[in-house]
Amino acid sequence: MGSQALWRLARDGVDVIGVEQFSPGHDRGSSHGESRIIRTSYLEGAEYVPFVQAAWRAWAELEEAAGSPLVIRSGALMLGRPDSGAISGSIAAAEHHGLAHEHLSPTALAERHPRHVMRSDEVGVFEDAAGVVLPEASILAAVRLARQSGARVWNHQAVTRIEPDPDSPRVWVGDTQIRARRVIVTAGAWLPGLLPGIADLGGGVRVERRVLGWFRITEPAPRTAHPEPVFARDEPDGTLWYGFPSMDGGRTVKIGVHAESPEVRSAAVRPPGAQWGEPVDPDAGPRPPDAADAHRLGELAAGLRGVAPLPERMASCMYTMTPDEHFLIGRRDELPGLVLAGGFSGHGFKFASAVGRAVAELARDGHTDLPVGMFDPHRWDAGPARP
């Protein structure tokens, strides 16, 4: 989100500095791992659809400026029982906004997407307006373009303190003080630490560990007229997991767990391999993947034909979770001069292009026409939402 805002502001002639504690495209946060899903029939809520559509347009702008593809259209396949969130939520969003989509019976799924092992009571929803965003490539492209437009980028320098002020907020980088007209804070898992009051919004913003796994393809899927899409699958116990078509020439597929079953969420002790609720100190980073993670991912990968039973490699990342799992985009009254973007709860990267535009406009103009009202950081307060 920060790299996108940096590029847009620099492109528009704003004097702007970007501060990064590691280096652009790093693997210490929530924006690594080679691929992220973008989908339009948004199962998390129909109210997201206009923002997804804005993100598609903004990704196209970045691609044109960069001169390289950053989004791969593969389509998306949602799987589960008809009453599951993946199915019912996707259909509700598509019907509300008149989006093209297809209902797929078990027979149609077996014919069109034979990679997936389906139960007799499970169905699918397919949409073409979906695919894969390349996270590291996107970040590097935005930073390169920002620099070309005059932005200054400070790498390997961590922000240690932010002082809000309506006219001249300050950012401290070690002993160096930066005074600005506005400060955009897109610090990911470090946001609650830099602005401690944020950690208490709505009852608590938390950072959790998640693990991704790459599974070797042992048998190519039978050839059909339909390429393999990105997918998300709701298991009968409430576990929601997701995956990608091969991004390395047919050698591996990548999967991950987005949400665990209600039993795991409420358990006093997590079973081996469970990730829901495991807290992370972002400075220390998430705990490395272990054998229990491999076993848990392997249980899910059994729902795919022709893949190895255990991942050949894994990676940990961080989810910064808000209580309602919606984002934080905008301003807080007690933090004058600051524009915030965070709490993306594991489903935000697809929106990075639109978030970057929104926070750039909020910082520069004081308003944006993008539909970010539902992400108001004041939404847990009494009274009307802020513009």
Rank of each mutant, 00 (worst) to 15 (best):
L140Q: 07
L109P: 06
A86M: 08
A137D: 14
A93N: 11
A130T: 14
A130V: 04
I139S: 00
L134A: 07
V117W: 04
L77A: 06
N155Q: 14
E127C: 05
H103M: 07
S138L: 08
R115E: 14
V153A: 04
R119N: 11
V133Y: 02
E95T: 13
A110K: 11
H97N: 05
W154T: 09
A86V: 02
A137V: 04
V153E: 08
F126L: 11
G98Y: 03
A110P: 07
N155I: 07
L109I: 02
P135W: 05
G150W: 05
I91V: 15
A141H: 00
P135Y: 13
R112A: 12
S105G: 06
G89V: 12
S149P: 01
W154A: 07
P114V: 11
R152G: 03
D128T: 12
H116M: 14
A108C: 09
H96K: 13
S149H: 09
E95M: 07
A142Q: 15
H113A: 08
L104F: 02
S138I: 04
L99E: 00
R152K: 11
R152M: 10
G89E: 06
H101I: 14
A100T: 03
E127D: 12
E122F: 03
M78V: 04
Q148S: 09
H103V: 11
V143N: 00
V143S: 00
V143R: 01
R112N: 11
A110I: 07
D83E: 15
V153S: 02
M78L: 03
V143E: 00
I87S: 01
V125S: 00
L99W: 04
I139G: 03
E136M: 08
A129G: 07
S149L: 00
E102W: 06
H96C: 04
A100V: 08
V132T: 06
A141F: 05
H103S: 05
S149N: 11
H96W: 06
A94W: 03
L104K: 05
A130H: 13
G98L: 09
S138R: 10
R81N: 01
S120V: 10
N155K: 09
A142R: 05
A130P: 11
G124S: 07
G124K: 03
E127R: 11
A100Q: 12
I139T: 12
A129Y: 09
G98R: 06
V123R: 01
F126R: 12
S105A: 14
G80I: 02
G89Y: 08
H116C: 04
L134E: 14
L134D: 01
A129T: 05
E95K: 13
T107I: 07
S88Q: 12
A141R: 04
S105F: 06
M118Q: 15
L77T: 12
T107L: 02
A130Y: 02
A110G: 15
A92N: 09
E111N: 08
A92P: 03
